[in-house]
Amino acid sequence: MIVDIPATTTRAVGKKLIELRESGGAVTIGRVLTLIVASRDGEQAETAIEAANEASREHPCRVIVLIRGDRSAESGLDAQIRVGGDAGASEVVVLRLHGELAEHEHSVVIPFLLPDTPIVVWWPNEAPKIPAQDPLGKLAIRRITDATKSPDPTSTIKSRLDSYSQGDSDLSWSRVTYWRGLLATALDQAPHEKVVDVTVSGLAEEPALDILAGWLAAKLEVPVHRRTGELKVELKRENSAISIVRPQTGKTATLSRTGQPDAEVALARRETRECLAEELRRLDTDEIYELALKGLSKVSYE
């Protein structure tokens, strides 16, 4: 069910939510958190809503979508409420802010926050320079950004350390979870020689590879080279090597280890909804993500 409420107020939207709940169209029982989706791009907001809906099947929540409308227009609010099949396992409140109201989105969102539940803010495209100091970020215990969608992904992911606060994370980090797991497993197998050199290559504007390189530099404390080329991670030891290679748009990677037959591994690019669901599983500080950001300074770009 989708209910449009044009030219409205937060009070009227709140009343409509209560009406829908009392009529059996929506319930808040079992909602484990409030997810605020701060979309600075109205055209891409629907994609973000779809991802949030899918993530809500694992984490039932209230999703509040903030969309900045025409800044030059008269100050006003258009709203939409989605429940049932149009909202996954959540209830979705879409708030489109026009004019001066767009500068006060944190005030608009407060009446819709679920009481006694954690608050998470996700910026699916452009994010503030310091998320923890943003008015919306101050409301949340977890702040999720996505450097992949920024105008300059490499510079953006490198700048995350300067703006880092406990509770920050980036979806580019979640996109390489399976890569990190596969590399860690391969390193745990014989021969247990020390890694002496690492190369991470792929698309130039792929921050997931940058953060992966930073993680390897921080954990292994060896030279790590970030190159542009085929999608590949290679770990060189004194007498052996480990590599993972995958076509850029492929779903299967090849794991190669010196002295062993190659292995085919399912390693498709993770969808945004999967990465978002993973981030919502843990609301505490991600210390390894912070470590990977610190490791970026040790990566050489070639």
Rank of each mutant, 00 (worst) to 15 (best):
S163E: 04
I288D: 14
W179M: 06
L187V: 01
S256V: 12
E50T: 14
I5Y: 11
I242F: 03
T145I: 06
E221K: 15
E74S: 15
V63M: 01
E234D: 08
G250H: 04
L267E: 04
L255R: 11
G202M: 02
D70I: 02
P115H: 11
E278D: 15
V121M: 12
D170S: 02
R281T: 14
M1Q: 10
D146K: 02
D197A: 13
C275Y: 01
V37L: 01
A204K: 06
L291C: 08
K138C: 06
A204F: 05
D78K: 03
V245R: 13
N239D: 13
V109D: 05
K294S: 05
I81W: 09
V27Y: 00
S243V: 09
E206A: 15
L35F: 09
V3T: 03
L136Q: 09
W215Y: 15
N53L: 06
L296H: 11
K16R: 12
L17T: 00
G214Q: 08
G25V: 00
V299T: 05
W123I: 06
V222N: 11
S174N: 04
I64L: 00
R142C: 06
R246D: 00
H106K: 08
L187E: 07
V37N: 04
K149H: 06
G137Y: 14
R31T: 05
S90M: 02
T254D: 06
D134T: 07
L35Y: 08
P131S: 12
V196K: 15
S23I: 00
V3W: 12
E103R: 15
H98N: 10
V265I: 15
E302F: 02
A277V: 12
V233N: 10
R40N: 06
E274T: 11
I288W: 00
V233T: 07
S201N: 07
A87K: 03
S107C: 00
M1E: 07
I130H: 14
T34P: 03
E278P: 10
E221W: 08
E100V: 02
Q166S: 15
Q260L: 13
M1C: 09
D4R: 12
P207M: 02
S165L: 06
T254R: 13
S150C: 07
T177A: 12
L209D: 06
V94H: 04
H59G: 04
C275K: 02
P115Y: 12
I141G: 14
E103V: 01
S297E: 05
P247K: 11
L161C: 02
A89P: 03
V94F: 07
N239Q: 13
